[in-house]
Amino acid sequence: MKRFFTLFAALVVLSLNLAGQDLLSELDELDSSEPVYTIATFKGTRVVNGHSIETKGEGELEFIISHRFGTINSGGYDLFGLDQAFIRIGLEYGLTDQLGVGIGRNSFNKIYDGYLKYKAIRQSDSGSPVTATTLISMGLQTYPQSKFDSTLTFGSRLNYTYQVLIARKISSDLSVQVAPTFVHTNRVDQTILNNDQFAMGFGARYKLTRSISLNAEYYARFDPHADSPYYNSFGLGIDIETGGHVFQLIFSNSQGMVERTFVTETAGNFFKGGIHFGFNITRTFQLTH
């Protein structure tokens, strides 16, 4: 009989506990279990020179103006490179939240470029630990004009870039990215360049404040041409975000702003002052929703 009372008392206590259970904790079982996708792994669609995993949201149009000045070590006469600016004007549009398309024109070697970007895998709290975006880009170099070199056909001016961008937002402040990259250029100066160039890109951003982040990017070429006068691309950037704008201030040994030029033809030696100051300015417009 004594056991009964113990059991009885225990059950009463238990039931009272159930009745007095915190209402808020009862809500947890009502929560939907949909995955929450990670956002803002990077502030911009570019880490420094190269692409980030970010694509534009559906119906968003991004207008990008990029400048790269001459090298800082070019002396005071050229105001440390400011007199030799190259510019790329570009547009990127989000067809869906995962699929983007872009076009641009870079005054460096007069290259037109177009690309498709697809965010295939999205990092989420309950799913994938990384976001993976594939990039297919095509470039058309229109310099020099054919009248100066009749062997330059349309096809010989083309190049293709294939990238898989893989990034993880490790914390709200730190994101890292790796980017296996393949650049094929139909015609190159084969005494110093390969038609096919593999490279591995590394990128990172660290948020200093909620509106400012520090970015770094490095592209290591695998097995470049033995007589290549070029360097691996390295860049540091500061992203400043204000509403619909992102200002990226950049220091890089690359002056080109498309994959072909910065991955395979980076001319500056970063550690000997061969650094180009530059910036990317983006403005985002929401066209449809």
Binding site: I39, A40, K56, G57, E58, G59, E60, G94, D97, R210, S211, G243, G244, T284, Q286, H289
Partner: peptide
């Protein structure tokens, strides 16, 4: 939000 960038800023910033 109507603007996805605004939605990102709302969450991030």
């Amino acid at each position: 939000f109507e603007k996805s960038l605004m939605q990102e800023h709302f969450n991030e910033k």
